[in-house]
Amino acid sequence: MKTCLVVDDSSVIRKVARRILEGLDFEITEAEDGKQAMDRVASKMPDAILLDWNMPNMDGYEFLLKLRQMAGGDRPKVVFCTTENDISHIAKAMDSGADEYVMKPFDKEILCSKFGEVGLV
């Protein structure tokens, strides 16, 4: 089964994302900030990561930069998922190694389209 790590400090968003992604046949693990996410990927690299930007401890941007430098860290498809929807944010995320970008609020159709874009649906 494909695996996806959902990283977001909002438990509501994690729950919504989990429900949608389980419907797309992903096995889900969760983390509530970048630090926790680092622990998760250190023990097992997922196939995909749905990543929030603004989080306490370590934000999504910093996590992504660290991830891409880890051994095997280039493998997961990273879909950035934020409320920031201006071009400079999107460009920054893509330049730092995200594969796709989702602007909140999202729905099943948009997540499906974006995970399709990175070849996982």
Partner: peptide, 20 residues
Amino acid sequence: NQFEVQRGLPTKMLLQYFQK
């Protein structure tokens, strides 16, 4: 709108062709 540019359109294309 935001919903329309996220359906089917890769982010790469969004950055290449659209202004907010």
